[in-house]
Computed example of a mutant assay.
Amino acid sequence: MDASLTDKDASLTDKESSLPITEQPSHYDHLETRSVIDLLRDMNIEDQKVAPTIEKVLPTVAQLVEQIVPRMRKGGRIFYLGAGTSGRLGVLDASELPPTFGVPPTFVIGLIAGGDTALRNAVEKAEDDSDAGWQELLAHGVNQEDTVIGIAASGTTPYVVGAVEKAHDHGILTGCITSNPHTPLAAAADVAIEMIVGPEFITGSSRMKSGTGQKMILNMISTAVMIRLGRVKGNRMVNMQLTNQKLIDRGTRMLVEALHIDYSKARRLLLLHGSVEKALEEHSL
């Protein structure tokens, strides 16, 4: 057994085993006495548990995606709700979609307990308000074509649970990503993604494995949805925003390859039409 593992790993006390998984003691102890390379190796060991765990819930992720797509084709949106790390990851995923896939920023919206201030600073007790998330959804005109996805490692965050419960009661498709089984959040969601990655390397620090898993699943959901909605051709981001020279060059090379034209002509076409997809459409007319 690794020297970093504690004696109690083999058998948790009754009190410890009754804790939610995200609060159970780390398998590692005396971290302050360990070398940097040992700390990194042990963190890496724990990180390697995330992908196989996500593999187990892929059918559930697929179920959620397949219900989202027809709603978005009718004008629906995705709302992510979370607090702390979970909220920041939702906002991150939402904010990356417009430049990557050329969709408006209202297509996928990330809401975090405490508002934008909470992206950089903790907002005291913001996550404990069980009505705030629903009120924010109402302010965005949430409706039955939309999808609300709650993100909470604990599965008990009032800001998230309250919003998902209200959305479900109003006939809105709801999903969730959590790291504990049988939580109030999962009970409130139509599609519950229970990603059980085990105790964190630092006890209770769900910014680690849980956060890594949340990011991976959010990537999967949003990317699969965008592909299904036709925002990708082949394996290329043909709707990406041309916000810098690197992306202009990437788009130009896509046109060179697709149309068998020289680089300068491809670049002129790209800049004229504003996206690879539009340039391809216009060139084929």
Rank of each mutant, 00 (worst) to 15 (best):
D2H: 15
S18C: 12
P25M: 10
Y28R: 13
T33I: 06
D47M: 06
V50S: 01
P52S: 04
K56M: 08
P59E: 04
V61W: 11
V61N: 07
R71F: 06
R71P: 00
R77D: 04
L81Y: 11
G82W: 08
A83V: 02
A83C: 12
A94M: 11
A94L: 11
A94I: 10
G102L: 09
G102N: 12
G102R: 13
V103D: 04
P104C: 02
V108T: 11
I109P: 01
E127W: 10
S130Y: 02
S130L: 00
A132T: 00
Q135A: 12
L138Y: 05
A139W: 09
A139H: 05
D146R: 10
D146H: 07
V148R: 02
V148G: 04
A152Y: 10
S154M: 09
G155C: 11
T156Q: 11
T157V: 08
T157C: 07
V161D: 00
G162Q: 00
H170P: 00
S179Q: 02
S179E: 00
N180D: 02
P184S: 09
A189K: 01
F201H: 12
S206D: 06
S210H: 06
L218D: 04
N219C: 08
I221T: 12
M226T: 03
G234Y: 14
V238T: 15
V238H: 06
K246P: 02
M254K: 03
D262Q: 12
Y263C: 01
R267Y: 08
R267L: 07
L271R: 13
H273P: 01
G274R: 10
E277W: 10
K278T: 15
A279D: 03
